[in-house]
């Protein structure tokens, strides 16, 4: 299971970083989504991967599932979800304002000259 989770986190992080470095806003949004998925898995794994364990300490000598990372993941999911929505709204607005999906910063005159007629 460790191998599976580690591979999933690694793949999603790699894909996320690749997409993040592209010049289109849509790719950046996808990349950030991938990255936050990877981060959520990663936080989850920080509480150790256990199966079929209680999340409260019943037997102090036995193992238990750490509930704190699960609570942290919940917070992280909510925040990243909201942020993805905001990012999408801003990309759409940027597309309508400048007529292109590029994320680079132009000087104002370049944007005017590139404006669709």
């Amino acid at each position: 299971m460790e191998f599976l989770v580690a591979t999933a986190v690694a793949t999603m992080t790699a894909a996320g970083i690749y997409l993040l470095l592209r010049a289109q806003t849509f790719s950046i949004v996808l990349g950030l989504t991938m990255l936050t998925y990877a981060v959520n898995f990663f936080i989850f794994a920080s509480g150790r991967l256990t199966v079929n364990q209680p999340d409260i300490v019943v037997d102090p000598s036995g193992t238990y599932a750490d509930p704190l990372p699960q609570a942290l993941v919940l917070t992280a999911i909510v925040i990243s979800f909201g942020m993805t929505a905001l990012m999408l709204v801003m990309s759409v607005r940027s597309y309508f304002e400048s007529g292109s999906d590029l994320a680079e910063l132009f000087g104002p005159e370049e944007i005017v000259s590139k404006d669709r007629q």
Binding site: M90, R93, E97, S98, A103, F106, G107, I111
Partner: peptide, 8 residues
């Protein structure tokens, strides 16, 4: 557009 892109 410039401010939106900078914001993005």
């Amino acid at each position: 557009a410039t401010r939106i892109r900078a914001g993005l």
